[in-house]
Amino acid sequence: MAWNRTLLRILRTPGLQPATVHATRSFALLHTAVYNAVVAAHGVGRPYLFAVNGARGAAPQAAAAQAAHDVLAALYPSVAADLDQQLAADLAAIPDRQAREAGTRIGAWTARLLIGLRAGDGSAATPPALSPGTEPGQYRPTPPGFGAAVFTHWSAVTPWLLDRASRFRSKAYPALTSAGYANAAEEVRRLGQDTSTTRTDDQTVQARFWAAPIHNYWNEIAQSAATTRHSGLLASARLFAELNLTFADAVIAFYDAKYHHRIWRPVTAIRLADTDGNPDTVADPTWNPLAGTPNDPAYPGAHSVVAQAGADVLARTFGGGQRISVTSESLAGVTRTFNSFQDAADEAGISRIFAGVHTRLDHDAGQRLGHDIARYALHNLTDPPTPAA
């Protein structure tokens, strides 16, 4: 968890994360390396993706710290000095020199193998340009910046667990002439506008509360849950590996769906509603959302995908009816309390309607995709503990 916090600090420092590499890849690399190193040092558990040989008497804490350090130092060399200090402090707390050295060898080897395994995964590709849509319903750059679409290459990144990015691809978007589409468009038109008088004060808080990268929130939620329940090193390492492998595949999968369907964002849909062929939608050429619109297609909603996947993974570990508190990354000092992981996931997804950047169609499809990815990941990751190879 300490190294997870370090990665969160790195990601919150402007300029350190490459703009074309999704941060969930870093989380997956970090925690898969840590978990596999701990399994090898303990000699108990099922490693993920590959296994390394352990050493009798190796210190699992040393293996975890060295693996975490080496992964992050490879990804973020500009902060290597700070990472070196953190590693030195961790290792200094392990008095047995032989156990410490055996653990560091395992950690270093695990990190090296994993980085090599993912070296050609497609994450370093140059994102191809996306031609703007011209027909009703088709995605095009959004105001005010009209920026180019982002992560157009990410659906081609090699999944971690899935056999293909499209395995659970969201079903076809409803017809623009349908009642379901009209209802969804009207809901976001009323509740998501920057000057809305229909949105409640609490709904405005929700929109702003969840505005930061959603995978950050769920790593924070996992930290709190593991700390409260006094999870040990092996259990915590496994939890974070499962969570972040699921997130990494969820992001690959939702970009596959987004760029397959290429559905316009609410700001475009509402401004051009007079072109959609639906008499029940209302055109407003001056409509603006409460929040800035992300530079990618709307369907499915990313927050909904990741939040649902996170809720499913954490509920499998800790049970569904867990009261949790979540602190906002985007509203300083603001904390919200929920009666379950699912309640938090529901609010995170719906908040994007209040922000004016998604419709309920995006949210519902996102939750279905997140649930499918989590169920698949947990099925493939959950086995009775066995000796590491």
Rank of each mutant, 00 (worst) to 15 (best):
A235S: 13
A241N: 05
R229D: 12
P213A: 03
S196V: 13
D202T: 14
L234I: 15
A226N: 05
A184K: 06
A222P: 08
A222N: 08
S231R: 11
F209P: 01
I214Y: 02
N216W: 14
R229F: 06
T195V: 12
T197H: 14
R189F: 01
E186R: 04
R229W: 09
N244K: 05
G180R: 12
A182K: 06
D194I: 14
A179Y: 04
N216L: 11
Q206M: 13
G192I: 08
F240M: 11
D202K: 14
P213Q: 05
Q203G: 04
H230I: 02
L191N: 11
R208I: 12
G180E: 14
E242F: 01
R229A: 11
S231K: 09
Q223V: 12
R199A: 10
W210R: 03
D202Y: 15
R190H: 09
S231E: 09
H215D: 07
R189M: 05
A226D: 06
A185M: 07
L243Y: 00
R208Q: 15
Q193D: 15
R208S: 13
S224Q: 10
W210E: 03
T200R: 12
D202I: 14
D194M: 10
L239A: 02
R238H: 02
R190M: 11
A211S: 15
L239F: 04
R190Q: 14
E220A: 02
D201Q: 15
Q206H: 10
A182R: 07
A235R: 07
A184W: 04
A182F: 02
N244V: 00
A226Q: 06
V188H: 04
Q223W: 11
T200W: 12
R190Y: 02
F240N: 08
D202M: 14
D201H: 13
Q203R: 06
A237I: 07
N219F: 01
T200L: 10
S196P: 13
A185Q: 06
T204D: 12
S224M: 08
L239Y: 02
D201W: 10
L245V: 13
N219Y: 01
A237H: 01
E220K: 03
V188W: 01
F247N: 05
E220R: 04
L239P: 01
A211G: 11
A225H: 01
R229G: 06
E187N: 07
A248G: 07
A222F: 08
A222H: 07
V188C: 05
A182T: 07
A241L: 01
Q223N: 15
D201G: 14
N216A: 13
P213M: 03
A225W: 00
L233Q: 10
N183L: 15
I221G: 00
S224L: 09
S196N: 13
W218Y: 06
L233K: 08
L243T: 02
D194N: 15
A179T: 10
S236Q: 11
A235Q: 14
V188T: 07
D249R: 04
A226F: 05
E187K: 07
D194T: 13
V205F: 06
D194R: 15
N183W: 14
F247M: 12
R190K: 14
T200E: 09
I221L: 11
A184T: 09
E220Y: 01
V188G: 02
A207G: 05
Y181S: 03
N216C: 08
L245F: 06
S224C: 03
F240E: 09
I214G: 08
A248F: 05
T204E: 10
D249A: 05
F240Q: 11
E186L: 05
